[in-house]
């Protein structure tokens, strides 16, 4: 695979030799990457490949056993709060409290992020995600698609420069998944956000991600744009690449390295 030209945009998230062991088993093994401002980077791999561990380390929820993490040029663990003020996160596996109204949940997080005009911001984002009508609904009674969009409103509340999305389209029907992808891409482009994106849905990856990293047993096995990876593999689609990596741990002779 030919090397891409160096990306001159600001690096907003960087892992250097990130390692995480659980009882002697390496879930992440000297994992290094850079995410640039305005870039959507997909983190792919089969279950157990190390994506979730990586995401948890990047969010400061799990402490790495080796390596360093930086966001906006600052060491993550020393400047966690400062970094979290400029970042946000959404996952299909977390929820906002189901016993509160959507509006109440969003007001709580708007206050946590110190928004000056929380109601205005919430109204704007709800309109953008086409969920204004859900404001007074009980959060726990929303459908999966509605819930995902409410989570995204929460994730965009503080105008994050860095956003981590963990399988945002999991359990959504193709129509809603498509809407979610489009809105993520739209907001990302408008606001020049750097996004770290995990998904098992290859359509998501092809539509949303500028660049992807394939992980296998905690190590990077392949890295590049989705088109380049498919073109330089023996597979016809990104999904085939995924399956090949999941089963064989490799896809091409020589993994492309980030410049």
């Amino acid at each position: 695979m030919s090397a891409a030209p160096p990306d001159t945009r600001e690096v907003i998230l960087e892992a250097r030799e990130l390692t995480r062991e659980f009882d002697g088993v390496k879930a992440l093994d000297r994992f290094s990457f850079k995410l640039h401002r305005g870039e959507v980077l997909g983190l792919l791999g089969a279950n157990g490949a190390g994506k979730t561990t990586a995401m948890n380390c990047l969010l400061g929820l799990t402490l790495p056993t080796g390596g360093d993490l930086f966001a906006f040029g600052l060491p993550l663990h020393q400047h966690r709060i400062k970094i979290l003020q400029r970042s946000n996160f959404s996952s299909a596996y977390t929820a906002l409290p189901g016993n509160l109204l959507v509006r109440q949940n969003l007001i709580v997080f708007a206050r946590i992020y110190g928004l000056k005009e929380p109601k205005k911001k919430i109204a704007e984002l709800m309109e953008l995600l086409e969920i204004t009508h859900l404001a007074d609904r009980v959060t726990g009674q929303l459908s999966a698609g509605e819930s995902t969009r409410v989570n995204l409103v929460k994730a965009f509340l503080n105008d994050p420069e860095l956003l981590m999305l963990d399988e945002p389209t999991a359990s959504l029907d193709p129509d809603i998944a498509d809407k979610v992808r489009k809105v993520v891409r739209k907001v990302q482009k408008e606001r020049n956000i750097g996004i770290l994106y995990t998904s098992h849905n290859m359509r998501d990856i092809e539509e949303v991600c500028d660049r992807v990293i394939f992980l296998h047993k905690g190590k990077i096995v392949c890295e590049g744009t989705p088109t380049d990876i498919v073109a330089q593999s023996s597979s016809a689609t990104l999904e085939d690449v995924f399956i090949k990596i999941a089963r064989d741990g490799e896809v091409i002779d020589e993994p492309a390295k980030q410049p």
Binding site: L59, G60, L61, I81, K82, L84, Q85, N88, F89, S91, Y93, T94, A95, L96, P97, G98, N99, F109, I112, Y113, G140, K154
Partner: peptide, 18 residues
């Protein structure tokens, strides 16, 4: 426990909350 039961704990821990 309310945050645990409603699966909101992660949202709190990844927000700028000391």
């Amino acid at each position: 426990l309310e945050d645990v039961w409603t699966r909101n704990l992660l949202n709190v821990f990844v927000a700028p909350v000391r």
